[in-house]
Design a protein around this nucleic acid. Structure first.
Lengths: 332, 332
DNA sequence: CTGAAAGCGCTAACAT
DNA sequence: ATGTTAGCGCTTTCAG
């Protein structure tokens, strides 16, 4: 199996190796008759090109590398799936490496993949900074999700977090809430900041005063939601609804509410952001802004494919969230 | 960058290419002094071996393929992570392909990876059958998780589901329950069957009659749990506890309970199986049997590595679940 | 312990 | 439209 080389196929088909190569790559034109001869020979021999030889010779590995910030997050499954499926449809292989939660880890992962001469990179990273990325751009085509640097716009699929957060908050306002707290992620995270911005924008537009004590910054984890609530309570503010910057922290809020016997949504409304799988199964099912992660991942893969294998110009794209109404928000 | 070849390194170091090769692979013995010379030269040139050339020449790609049944399941993140991290530690690359929920899809994924001449395979599949696997064994070393075929024992990391289910059920019995229902997965799934077996074993041991009406088989999904409860109700049986064959269906039971105003665990105790991430966040937090998926995945990767790169004999391993007590079971 | 030489299997000019 | 000829960059006998 898989032992036969292009030479044997050529011999059997009575053509030259280059012709065989031409049909396997259906690159240049081959006469229909000879193509059929060759294909039959390949059939008969169970021929499969040796990809190492192809790579060595063509300087193309037909492989895209993907580095994922944390492989075990609840977040990345659909994205990996989106990338894998669109790439495979094109016959391209996907090499994967995990970033292990730090800038160094992510850089290491990138280098590891580059050693392997991947043709391009998909980055689902969280820590790589602009400078590194600008350098990286000289070495390999890449696309990333959700790190919205101006100078890298043409390589980024990004979610309009300002608008998403604005819509989430506005939804709360439309439901009659005016005392709305906000729990978002750390201040060095662009997305966390943008979500705060959107929140503020909605309040201002509705002439609701923006109070610093109503805004807390923790981490985008369940524990962050818990802490956020503690902090809000410590701040002594009163509120009937909270906008959480992501679903995990929203679930933390739910957990806090449960522990403190405040019933959601009767006594407290909460809206999340992202729409992770979990969110529909918590109690109560979480109302949230759906982020089209699968689609973004697919786009990422498509852009990469087009630039790398069909010299398309790099270009980014903007995506928007959509509201998923479930049961964690109540009108007042 | 990455432009220099082994030849240039050899020249700079004043040795032959073969010697450079020897140090990069630290395979055969090289005099300390020359090794240092070579390493300095590599440093200076920023040399990185071209892996396509290595593969072509050595017939080894230093790459392991992994096929995952469904990349977007809640289940696989930790496993992929476990495989990736242990492989990368050894400098081996991980190629990934998704099985898309069918036997053909999984076979296609396998073939896709084999085209790439991976050195071995990690299979997190659900549909590949024994016959296919027996054939596959002639083509490539592989390891898999959780498909316990006798004839393939030496390639399988398996969870003792009979024992796990036994322990889960026994826990319920120890809490005073005697009317215990069981909701498990479809009958063609070995794991679903084993979990029913364990359940029965525990009942028998405690001299509790095993009633067919108390056992329903649905799917291992949230909806399966919902359906399971409906069926149980249709059967007209009474029970104070249910053992669900996996966490997702257990969460379905929780949802059903919530919808029908039966309070868990006050009126109904439920124990799950697997300990997926979600389970600690549902209400009430689910008591369940923890399956050591991350560890199994790591083992898988280690076995693969050892057999492939160090000619160890293939061997499987058995794993066991551990009880995670949370809040969905109450003593009566 | 190190060097020389012969490919690994394919693609890519360049001819024809 | 197809064949010829060189390599791609490395590992691997085989000598020494």
């Amino acid at each position: 199996m898989n032992k036969s080389s292009i030479l044997e196929v050529a011999k059997l088909a009575g053509v030259s190796p280059s012709t065989v190569s031409r049909v396997t790559n259906n690159r240049s034109i081959v006469k229909e008759a000879t193509r059929i001869k060759v294909e039959e020979a390949m059939q008969k021999l169970g021929y499969t090109p040796n990809s190492a030889a192809q790579s060595l010779s063509s300087k193309r590995t037909n492989t895209i590398g993907m580095v994922v910030a944390m492989l075990d997050g609840p977040f990345y499954g659909p994205m990996i799936s989106g990338v894998e499926s669109t790439l495979r449809k094109q016959g391209k292989h996907l090499l994967i490496a995990s970033g292990s939660g730090s800038a160094e880890g992510e850089e290491e992962a990138v280098e590891f993949l580059l050693n392997r001469q991947v043709d391009g990179l998909i980055l689902l990273t969280e820590w790589l900074d602009r400078r590194y990325l600008k350098e990286l751009e000289k070495r390999v085509p890449f696309y990333m999700i959700n790190q919205h640097h101006d100078s890298l716009d043409h390589r980024v699929m990004w979610l309009d977090d300002v608008e998403g957060a604005y819509n989430a908050t506005k939804y709360l306002i439309n439901k009659g809430h005016t005392k709305i707290a906000c729990i978002s992620g750390q201040e060095f995270k662009t997305d966390a900041n943008d979500r705060v911005l959107g929140y503020k924008k909605a309040l201002k537009e509705a002439n609701i005063p923006v109070l610093d004590d109503m805004i807390v910054r923790t981490s985008f984890e369940v524990s962050g939601g818990l802490q956020g609530m503690e902090q809000l309570k410590a701040n002594g503010v009163e509120f009937t609804a909270v906008f959480a910057g992501n679903d995990e922290s929203a679930i933390g809020v739910l957990t806090w509410a449960n522990q403190h016997n405040v019933s959601v949504p009767a006594q407290l409304s909460v809206i999340g952001y992202d729409d992770i799988l979990l969110s529909q199964h918590v109690t109560p099912p979480l109302t949230t802004m759906h982020a089209p992660n699968f689609e973004m991942a697919k786009s990422c893969a498509e852009k990469a494919f087009n630039e790398i294998y069909h010299k398309a110009d790099p270009s980014g794209a903007k995506f928007v969230t959509t509201l998923i109404e479930r049961s964690s928000v109540k009108a007042i």
